[in-house]
Simulated scan of single mutants.
Amino acid sequence: MGQSLIGHTLPADAACGNAMIDMGPDRSLLILLKHCRDMKQQETRLRIITLLLLLGCTALFIFTICVDLRPHENSVSSGQGSAAERGPSHSKQVRVSPADSQTNFKRLRIHLRSVSEDNKTDPRLIRWDVDFGENNYDNKKRAIVIPEDGFYFVYVWVALGCHQVDRASNFKEFKVALHKWTEGYNCNVTLIEAWDGITCTPDGKRSVFVGQLFELWKGDHVSVWINRGYKLITKSTFGAYLA
């Protein structure tokens, strides 16, 4: 009886080895399945979090647009209401832009050309014909009228020549000046003047140009004054523009 028990009993280390071989694959499979389940749960959480972030950003963007549009709508509606209350005359005034106002009242551009006259005597003012800018020309005073305060470039060009009766003289002197008349002072002020001359030869011709930037005031009258050599003038131009 003791021999039969010994013959059927397994060693302890052999029994343990068989147990480990039997349990190893099942345990590894369980660990792998658990790991896969955890990864899927994490992936699902990340997707949910990403979707919530996208929804939040979209809602914030729509809210920002709505907030920006409300003040604009209010300003447009209030502006339309004000224009309607003030009537058509106010609407017409609003349509006049600052650029148009500046063009109509401040952007002075005028150009004059001389007109020949008989019985010339020195000194005197030149008689002018307007090429453009007649609204700013005073024919009585033969002067350019400044419409607004500002800096203006004023110029005059004169062509000189000797008459046949003056051929005996060797040299003729010419003197021109730009004068400014101001209503407040009621007097003429010399802005600039120039001297020149011409030798009376068969081919004797010459031209004189005077131009400068001046600070002028509304209502000033600028004119060309010939102090000497008026008879030498064959033609001339005179003009001004806002710089």
Rank of each mutant, 00 (worst) to 15 (best):
R109D: 04
G197N: 10
I31K: 11
G150K: 00
A15H: 09
V210E: 13
I198T: 01
C57N: 06
N74V: 03
G2S: 10
R228F: 06
I233S: 00
T58M: 05
N136Y: 01
G239F: 00
K175C: 01
A15C: 11
L216W: 02
C187D: 10
Q212I: 05
V145T: 11
G2T: 07
P98L: 07
L55E: 09
G87F: 09
E85F: 13
P88C: 11
P147N: 05
V189R: 12
T190F: 04
G7Q: 14
G56V: 03
T50E: 14
V210D: 12
N139P: 06
V94H: 14
D196Q: 10
N186V: 03
K140L: 14
P11H: 09
T234N: 07
L29R: 04
R109F: 00
E85Q: 06
D149L: 03
E193Q: 09
R228L: 14
T58W: 12
P123N: 11
Q93F: 06
Q164E: 09
S4H: 07
D22Y: 02
V158G: 05
L51W: 10
E43C: 13
L242G: 04
Y241N: 04
V189S: 13
L191F: 02
L32H: 15
G2W: 01
P123F: 00
R47H: 09
F151C: 15
Y230V: 01
V130K: 01
Q42V: 07
R206K: 15
K141G: 13
W128L: 07
T190S: 12
Y230K: 00
E173L: 09
K120Y: 02
R37H: 14
V222E: 13
N135H: 02
D22H: 03
G239K: 00
T58P: 04
I6F: 10
L242K: 02
P71D: 03
K141V: 04
K34N: 11
L54R: 13
F153V: 11
D203Y: 06
A12C: 06
L51H: 10
K205T: 03
N18V: 06
C36T: 09
I48C: 12
V176A: 03
P88G: 01
F132M: 00
V67D: 12
A159S: 12
